[in-house]
Amino acid sequence: MARALRLLVADDHAVVRAGLVALLSAQPDIEVVGQAGSASETVEEARRTRPDVVLLDLSMPEGGGLRAARLLLSDPEPPAIVVLSVHDDAPHLRAALRSGAAGYVTKGSADRTVLEAIRTAHAGKTYVDPALSDVVTAELMVSGRLKRATDAPLTPRMQEVLRLVAWGYTTQQIARQLSLTPKTVEAHRARIMERLGLLNRAELVRYAFQAGLMDAAPPTPEGER
């Protein structure tokens, strides 16, 4: 049989850590080689015990889990990092993957999920908790729509309107600035959304930014301040 997977468990809550260790040590292919209760302890312990995988709590004292992850991943022959987090949102997932984590599991998900994440990460692949699949899907769908949107060019007037919308000016302010009626500004906006196939203001502004419409400093419409 192959050598057991060497695992370090890092969580600042002793009770949770004990529960995890009990669960994980019961697996024949896993050997828990160390435990840590803070970010700095994690780095220390990992450098001392040289585990294959670190199961890492995101919110830990002394710098947080991600700082520990970044430090460890800059070492030669770094361990694979599996993040265990209470957060099930896109920003935390994104931050974890950006720091180089190979797995992301939310606390409270089935222990099977935790085990699968650890084994997948050890095999050199990436694992994301199925509970977060809608987050991932939503991200992909938005970027898909934005990609399609770039194929639909806007008239210069539309670009002007979009630029002001993106900088957060009110319809009234935009109308004054461009010497249009508010209804005309609204109509332009509606046509922009339709032409680009975008669904809401967030996507619209994201498009404006990516299309370079916001590269110049924001204009100051008349009557502002």
Partner: peptide
């Protein structure tokens, strides 16, 4: 932990889940 932008993203996601209305932050 991450500031206002990510917090608004998370807020929108919770909103979408709770009300079935698609909310998105940028």
């Amino acid at each position: 932990e991450m500031g206002l932008g990510p917090a608004l993203e998370a807020l929108c996601r919770t909103f979408t889940e709770q009300h079935g209305v698609h909310a998105e932050a940028y």
